[in-house]
Design a binder for these strands. Structure first.
Lengths: 342, 342
DNA sequence: GTGAAAGCGCTAACAG
DNA sequence: CTGTTAGCGCTTTCAC
């Protein structure tokens, strides 16, 4: 029968039980210093530690060393399906390197500062930010506090912080190239919020790609957010404000689905009357009607790479690239069709 | 211009700056003990603390008090869309009560123990478990270690741990009642893994409800997991092994979508040839073809309630119910139709 | 109401 | 190679 409560065995208990000084135990149990211990003592200590069920107290170690093996992650909305794979990547890297991850959902940007303050009180070793507006003062705040930090998914354009991102311009080029190959010329863009780096990058990607194809500049409607509702609203605005485009490139999948809603209301068929593309390849967009042509991102790897960069920096082996740009990939499904299909 | 690195101001700095003893500062800054401090001193201390940008060091406090204001959450797969809202609920409650949340993705059940050990080393105050098989030894382990813990989403049948769950039997009754009202009698069930509490509960719910309607017991095929692939496989088995049912009640949405895949392959139409129901109402199942009739769960509230129970227990005000059962809700869409529709 | 002193469990000089 | 010693920043007696 086991004891009712964990009896908290400390380094001293292990020491007396194995007849050595407690600092010897401390050394023996630290991979970095264990080599300076004689083989016999080392084995003895390890054995008794195991037998007694010793668990190091990280709080004590943290107080002494200033390192908690803990990082914070700031996400805007964990229910947005792009973030779970990113988090998974971060967490996998953290687990592999002996860190733990505090996840905070920063619904309202106003909350970022207080949350960050509390995280600092918890003595986090570093921070992964999946939030941040363009020129966000938060970035300066983080740097001024000497906090190790990296960004993921969204990059800070000024490069003040290392980042792991997908190539937004390439992503949109892939979409436009695909539509161009299908014969479309009048392409519109439902753009993301222009105060967010990805919103700008993707819009520029569309514009650049269309320019390269010698098309007229796209009609652009900015969405208020990356949501289905915002997509509906933007699509309504687009339909109301001019001739119907042949295709519409959307800043993300949710916006594309919002566009679907409005097009259906308006009696327009996708892709016969109008082609639609998304971005993210979130789960189930292959099951919607019609299956959505979109851009797939290596979300999990984005998270993994961001975390690796952060840990390297924390541990002082900061050789890693300052910005990692990963390649997105076009996934063709049934929401795009050749122009003369109608 | 701000200092390059945070100069870590401590309680002593605040003390000398305000000309009092550091223990007075400690008292003044603790809501629970601040009342014993004279008004003038209190205000002075608060003011200087603010001026110096004092941040309490939780690691020190943790070492002294044994409380870290940190909890761990074990989820099987954060990319499964049921978990993000649960996490969000947990995190919202935690933020409101001054706690932080370690999230660990326990892909392989084998990993649970080592992860838990590491969390204990980090001195977590409590644990929320969204994993656990039936009669999982992990539950005993947690209790024997005197760890405060609650379960969420999946309950331990033996009631060894408090839990916040949805009423699985009711959920399946809602589905069966709905199908019965549409005139169906030959209903099959694609069941969840029978080593998981929810798998059993839902199967029993279907069986009980059908019994109550005086129907013959359902044909049941067990899925290997709660995934689309497992749903495909189970649906294949079902079609191959007997007469075609009029309706199939699925243990969750992903399984239902797997069933869609196979029915489409087989040239069967949903709902004309066969009605299908899901469970969870995950994002976008209203956009698939046809939109899925399913059961909606209060996932966010599940997480919130679980966390609240945990914090109450940690803080010793353990008046809360031991098990909270929340009501699921039927969402009728287009994957179910009356029997004579065909 | 405030000061003094001890110590949580650990690491990191410094001796020997 | 191992023992000694001194704190990390905080809370918590115990005095006054």
């Amino acid at each position: 029968m086991k004891p009712a409560k964990a009896p908290k065995v400390t380094i001293r208990d292990v020491a007396t039980a194995s007849g050595v000084h407690f600092s010897t135990v401390s050394r023996a149990l630290d991979p970095a210093r264990r080599k300076r211990i004689s083989k016999e003592v080392l084995e003895l200590v390890e054995e008794t530690a195991r037998r007694l069920g010793y668990q190091p107290n990280r709080a004590a170690s943290a107080l002494r060393t200033g390192r908690t093996h803990t990082i914070g992650v700031l996400v805007p909305d964990i229910t947005n399906p792009v973030f779970p794979p990113i988090l998974q990547g971060i967490e996998a890297s953290a687990a592999a390197r002996g860190y733990f991850v505090f996840v905070a959902n920063v619904g309202d940007p106003q909350l970022a500062r207080p949350i960050l303050a509390r995280m600092q009180a918890q003595q986090i070793d570093g921070l992964v930010m999946a939030i941040a507006l363009r020129d966000d003062p938060l970035i300066d705040f983080v740097r001024d506090n000497g906090l190790h930090a990296v960004m993921v998914n969204r990059a800070d354009e000024s490069g003040r912080l290392p980042a792991a991102v997908s190539d937004d311009r390439l992503a949109m080029k892939l979409a436009v190239d695909h539509l161009a190959a299908l014969g479309h010329r009048r392409i519109a863009h439902l753009a993301g919020p222009q105060n967010v780096p990805t919103g700008v990058g993707r819009r520029q990607g569309v514009e650049q790609a269309m320019h390269d194809h010698r098309m007229k500049p796209p009609r652009v409607v900015e969405c208020e957010s990356y949501s289905r509702e915002a997509g509906q609203q933007a699509m309504r605005t687009l339909l109301a404000s001019g001739p119907r485009p042949e295709a519409v490139v959307c800043c993300n999948d949710l916006v594309a689905l919002g566009a679907y809603d409005v097009l259906r209301e308006a009696g327009l068929r996708v892709p016969e009357d109008i082609s639609v593309t998304g971005h993210n390849d979130m789960p189930l967009v292959d099951m919607v009607d019609p299956p959505l042509t979109t851009i797939r991102l290596p979300h999990r790897e984005l998270g993994w790479r961001a975390a690796e960069m952060l840990f390297d920096e924390i541990e002082g082996k900061s050789l890693s690239a300052s910005t990692v740009v990963l390649r997105p990939e076009l996934v063709v499904r049934a929401s795009t069709a050749a122009r003369n299909a109608s």
